[in-house]
Design a protein around this nucleic acid. Sequence first.
DNA 1: AAGCGATCTGACCAAATGGTCAAACCAAAT
DNA 2: ATTTGGTTTGACCATTTGGTCAGATCGCTT
Lengths: 197, 197
Amino acid sequence: MDASETEQRILRAALTVFERDGFLGARMQVIADEAGISKAALHYHFRNKEKLFDRIFDDYTARIIPLVGSWDDGTDDWRGQVRRFVKELMHLFSESSLLFMAQELHRDPKKLEPRMQQRRKAPNRFVDWYGHLRSKGLVRNTDPHAVLTAMQSLCAYPSMNPRMLAGAMRMNKQEYGRFMASYPDHVADMLIRIMEK
Amino acid sequence: MDASETEQRILRAALTVFERDGFLGARMQVIADEAGISKAALHYHFRNKEKLFDRIFDDYTARIIPLVGSWDDGTDDWRGQVRRFVKELMHLFSESSLLFMAQELHRDPKKLEPRMQQRRKAPNRFVDWYGHLRSKGLVRNTDPHAVLTAMQSLCAYPSMNPRMLAGAMRMNKQEYGRFMASYPDHVADMLIRIMEK
DNA sequence: AAGCGATCTGACCAAATGGTCAAACCAAAT
DNA sequence: ATTTGGTTTGACCATTTGGTCAGATCGCTT
């Protein structure tokens, strides 16, 4: 079998299992089964569990990073940008939520924070962008960090904790799915209300 | 040693460890160490890991349930109620976040959903409350489920994923702590903006 | 077809894990 | 002082786990 194809199957399987069981709970045998190969073959491609997890972690962040930096100062249509951003981010989260990353970041911060701190020095695109809009008098004069936090919360949480949310709203899985289909529009509207003067 | 005191120490220790490592990752020996007793004594008080986890889970939900139902139709001061609710809920989450519950609900929905479905039949207090306000013309005419989802997201997420959030905002732990001290007020303000006409 | 390097596998191992148990400990009642 | 009941412990066990290894298999070149 082609090596890179096998790797892809492993990565898909590993994402599923890490997402469900976390790093400590994930079993190499389960990942191997899910990928349809032997445990030994799994260790051939990824020397150990940690290396495999790191790869999953990096691949995932690599998908998010370009998105969270995509704020354009060149246009005054900030509402359009908010709508686009929310739509894309929530689509990403609907495929694979942040849950396992949050869990692992909480369990072993030291291992993963170096990976995040590379970016510590770079400026935060959203904060700069908001400052720009504010200086042009387009948006409300408030702390952009609060807006950023709200944006991430609104986009990330529903996919991180769908069961509790569905339970709180007395929805079954189907009803919740239907609700979530229209929810990104709500989120964008709410964020616009939060930002506008 | 008093039995009930030992139990309390176990429960405190178990919450810490389950929160950090999840159900699968938690080690009975670690919980015993954290509680300052032997592993055998731990098993004497809680027959097995599942029974212990269930107790933690139930104790935690028992603290949340009364809060999320505390919406009072008797007054027109809905802004005050939002402020109080956000403050209390975020204080609870700052002590112990929803992360491990979300993780476990995701990993093994069948085990825990019966526990939640007891309440499936009861009406959702917030939705009713919002309908009341709407009929009195006090709040905006929008889907209360979206408002409820936003409220839970805004309150729960920052305590569930503080590291990533702090990283995104280029804050260290101290700066993030200071930010989070004032953030509940921001959340209340934003929710009020979302709800008002 | 013969050789070769990459890929895969079953069998295996040392360490860790949840859980058990007989024996020890301890405070209160007799 | 002795008994009694609840509580605690170290030693122990069966099973599971991440990881290794020698050899099999596959695909490609010569």
